Simulated scan of single mutants.
Amino acid sequence: MRRKIILDVDTGIDDSLALLYLLASAEAELLGIAATAGNVPAAQVAANTLALLDLAQAPPIEVALGASEPLAIPLRTTEDTHGPQGLGYAELPVTARELSARSAARMWVDLVRAHPGAVTGLCTGPLTNLALALRIEPELPVLLDRLVIMGGAFNHPGNTTPTNEWNIHVDPEAAKEVFDAFSAAPADRRPIVCALDITETIEMRPAHLVALAEAAGSTPLEHVAATDTPDWRSCASNPIIAYLTDAVRFYFDFHQHYDLGYLAHMHDPFAAAVTLDPGLARTRPATVDVELAGTITRATTVADWAGMWGREPNADIVIGTDPAVFFDRLVTRVGALARRLYPEQP
């Protein structure tokens, strides 16, 4: 049976790989995509998402525009990480696909109500849209089959401040509303949280791009390196591989600039893979809350692993995985999609 999914994204680079992973997976049925402000403004997120659906020759999938601002603070975006349009060095044609007439929050509510107990939510950006949806329908935690969140940092340094992760940092009030609301979820429907503790072990390297090109039958096989200049562009014969090379190379350059190595942390596609197969992840239940008042710790996710607060767990936090298994699936699935959509001409 195909898993019905609502994807809530702030489409930058790794979000785009998450989308391609889902489109390449036979067991995924994308009911709708919510565009949330985060890596870039919401309108650019929507444009990126629609253009990627074109690139992947996807059937009509509803894309709904989300709130332009977080719940309580000004929007902060991160073009330094994801490029001026959010897709690194890649540029995609403007699409003729149109946005939904309903808001992202309304789409969340309507789709879950239409399929009670059968929809999995996957959030790879700030949680603004989901928080607004919960204000419309507080029963979402029991109406959803499951929720997967890429966000937070627990026993791990933050990537935005010393203690907090980007998605939570952009809209901490929304994150707190979501975690508080999901305290009502049954134990078998607690959100699965893919935090930096694990997603920063999902290290994509240039060899993975070569493997994707091989799987797609794309030529030439391009070996990107830290010595490549910013104006270099892929000439891969397969458009999906050319897109991935140009997008991910920007991400490599960003990580290299911060002395993390010539690699890219694939936070969001890992969360997509866990959405389709929770068995990829080892989890541990905890009660999660979000700090809103701390002078230097605002937006920090705090996990009570030992029950000190006397509150039931409201999340299953991923504590382990095998990155090699994930990358094998990513290369196999996305490579096969690229080969099928853009076969090499004899």
Score class of each variant (00 low, 15 high):
residue 92 L to G: 06
residue 116 P to F: 08
residue 274 V to N: 13
residue 207 A to W: 09
residue 329 R to Y: 06
residue 130 L to F: 09
residue 211 A to R: 05
residue 38 G to S: 14
residue 123 C to T: 15
residue 79 E to N: 11
residue 31 L to M: 11
residue 200 E to D: 15
residue 85 Q to M: 05
residue 39 N to Q: 03
residue 40 V to M: 05
residue 340 R to W: 10
residue 29 E to T: 08
residue 165 E to C: 07
residue 217 G to Q: 10
residue 258 Y to V: 13
residue 32 G to R: 10
residue 135 R to N: 11
residue 31 L to I: 08
residue 319 I to N: 09
residue 130 L to R: 01
residue 320 G to P: 06
residue 172 P to A: 03
residue 184 A to K: 01
residue 265 H to M: 11
residue 246 D to W: 11
residue 309 W to Y: 12
residue 150 M to S: 15
residue 10 D to E: 07
residue 317 I to M: 10
residue 174 A to Q: 09
residue 143 L to Y: 02
residue 63 V to I: 11
residue 31 L to W: 05
residue 154 F to R: 04
residue 269 P to Y: 14
residue 340 R to Y: 07
residue 60 P to K: 03
residue 152 G to Y: 08
residue 38 G to F: 11
residue 162 P to C: 08
residue 205 R to G: 04
residue 156 H to L: 10
residue 135 R to W: 02
residue 191 P to G: 02
residue 343 P to R: 10
residue 296 I to W: 06
residue 82 H to P: 09
residue 71 L to E: 07
residue 127 L to G: 07
residue 269 P to M: 10
residue 296 I to A: 13
residue 139 E to W: 05
residue 133 A to F: 11
residue 74 P to A: 06
residue 176 K to T: 07
residue 276 L to I: 08
residue 61 I to A: 10
residue 136 I to C: 00
residue 264 A to C: 14
residue 200 E to N: 15
residue 281 A to T: 04
residue 122 L to P: 09
residue 121 G to I: 15
residue 63 V to P: 05
residue 181 A to S: 15
residue 211 A to N: 01
residue 133 A to P: 08
residue 224 V to L: 14
residue 345 Q to E: 15
residue 237 S to A: 14
residue 334 V to S: 03
residue 78 T to V: 10
residue 50 L to N: 11
residue 326 F to C: 10
residue 34 A to P: 03
residue 56 A to P: 02
residue 181 A to W: 09
residue 158 G to M: 00
residue 9 V to R: 05
residue 344 E to V: 02
residue 116 P to H: 13
residue 113 R to H: 14
residue 71 L to P: 04
residue 43 A to V: 04
residue 259 D to E: 14
residue 292 L to P: 13
residue 194 C to N: 14
residue 60 P to R: 01
residue 111 L to C: 07
residue 212 L to Y: 13
residue 341 L to A: 02
residue 324 A to T: 14
residue 140 L to Q: 12
residue 44 Q to D: 13
residue 160 T to S: 12
residue 98 E to Q: 15
residue 72 A to S: 15
residue 28 A to H: 08
residue 101 A to M: 05
residue 271 A to C: 06
residue 259 D to T: 07
residue 200 E to L: 03
residue 311 R to H: 14
residue 211 A to D: 07
residue 225 A to Q: 11
residue 253 D to W: 06
residue 200 E to K: 12
residue 11 T to K: 02
residue 50 L to T: 05
residue 8 D to Q: 07
residue 128 T to R: 01
residue 36 T to G: 10
residue 38 G to R: 11
residue 294 G to Y: 05
residue 268 D to F: 02
residue 319 I to D: 09
residue 70 P to W: 02
residue 48 N to W: 08
residue 151 G to Y: 03
residue 104 A to I: 08
residue 252 F to Y: 13
residue 62 E to H: 00
